[in-house]
Simulated assay, not measured.
Amino acid sequence: MRIMGLDFGTVTVGVAISDPLGWTAQGIETVHYVEHKKNLLFDRIGELIQEYGVESVVVGLPRDLIGTESERALASRSFAKSVRRKFKIPVELWDERLTTMAAERILIAADVSRKKRKQVIDKEAAVLILQSYLDKKRMESKNDE
């Protein structure tokens, strides 16, 4: 069962996909969009859902360090609702606190140039969101055994 992770931003959406067993997340792409043409964004997400056989989606929910949700969180909630409605698959929101900062650190440690980091940071943030979700689900299933 493949799961898609999405890091929803104001002009880009980072996309990650799990392996078929749901153990690891791999970055797929960063989708650029403009607000008045969001249908193109949903078209691309739909193509990826079909291509990878995605059965559920995890959307990052931005919060500040104390857990308070911002206006950006409201946009992410609305986006998640739209994905659920358009593709008729389960969508969960997942705390994405500090994922962009963590992705930035990983890319810097890998000696990725500033220009290249800007192009891939949302995709890497989606990987971190999805991987933390997969790890949590795996721990929960171990505890249930």
Rank of each mutant, 00 (worst) to 15 (best):
D43N: 15
S113V: 08
G5F: 05
P20F: 13
E96A: 09
V13L: 09
M1C: 01
K142R: 09
F87Q: 10
I89K: 08
V91L: 07
R114H: 12
Q131D: 02
E96I: 10
H36W: 14
V91P: 11
L6C: 08
Q119M: 14
S132T: 03
V57I: 12
I129F: 04
S113D: 12
I89Q: 05
V83G: 03
S70P: 01
D7M: 09
S70T: 11
Q50N: 12
E29L: 06
Y33W: 02
D135P: 00
A80W: 00
W94K: 01
I49M: 12
Q131K: 01
Q119P: 04
R138V: 00
V127A: 02
A103Q: 06
E51S: 12
N39H: 11
H36F: 08
E145N: 12
G14T: 06
E104V: 05
V120I: 14
T68I: 06
V13A: 12
K136I: 00
E69C: 00
K88L: 13
K118M: 11
M1S: 13
V112C: 08
G67P: 03
I121P: 00
D19N: 07
K115G: 06
Y133D: 01
K86N: 10
G27T: 06
M101V: 10
A125H: 04
I89A: 02
S76L: 03
R85T: 13
K115M: 12
V13K: 07
G67F: 01
L61H: 03
I106H: 04
W94N: 02
I45N: 07
L48I: 14
A125S: 15
G60H: 06
Y52G: 07
V91H: 07
L98F: 15
K86I: 13
K88V: 09
L130N: 04
I17G: 03
L107Y: 07
I106Q: 14
V83A: 03
L134D: 03
Q26T: 14
I89P: 02
G60T: 01
V57R: 03
V83T: 05
T100E: 11
L61G: 01
I3L: 08
A75K: 11
Y52T: 02
Y133H: 05
G9I: 11
M4V: 02
P90Q: 06
H36A: 09
E145P: 03
V34D: 07
I108W: 09
M101D: 13
R97G: 06
M101I: 07
